[in-house]
């Protein structure tokens, strides 16, 4: 998805994992994904650099569709659609 598309997206659930380092954001994502229906969009907020690489790999394994990232000043927004 393009940056413009991501900016206009409506997310069903936002997971704020900015307060934790690896593997915290991943654990937060795993915990939260159960609260989202298949096809819905989840957004993860992370201040951990590694998460930007890790979450797409996690999506690949779990068969969720990784939609892309948006950079904010001090953190990253990661978007995915649940399988």
């Amino acid at each position: 998805m393009t940056t413009e598309e991501l900016k206009g997206i409506t997310t069903n659930l936002i997971v704020d994992a900015r307060g934790t380092a690896c593997p915290g954001p991943l654990l937060a994502a795993k915990k939260a994904i159960g609260d989202v229906e298949s096809g819905e969009i989840m957004e993860i907020l992370s201040a951990d650099e590694g998460t930007k690489v890790d979450i797409p790999r996690w999506c690949e394994k779990m068969e969720h569709e990784f939609l892309g990232t948006l950079e904010e000043d001090s953190y990253t927004r990661l978007f995915l659609r649940k399988a």
Binding site: C22, P23, L26, L27, K30, W58, K61, M62
Partner: peptide, 11 residues
């Protein structure tokens, strides 16, 4: 523990 937790998060 970190590797284990990452693996568990990956099911």
């Amino acid at each position: 523990m970190v590797i284990s937790l990452a693996a568990a998060a990956m099911d």
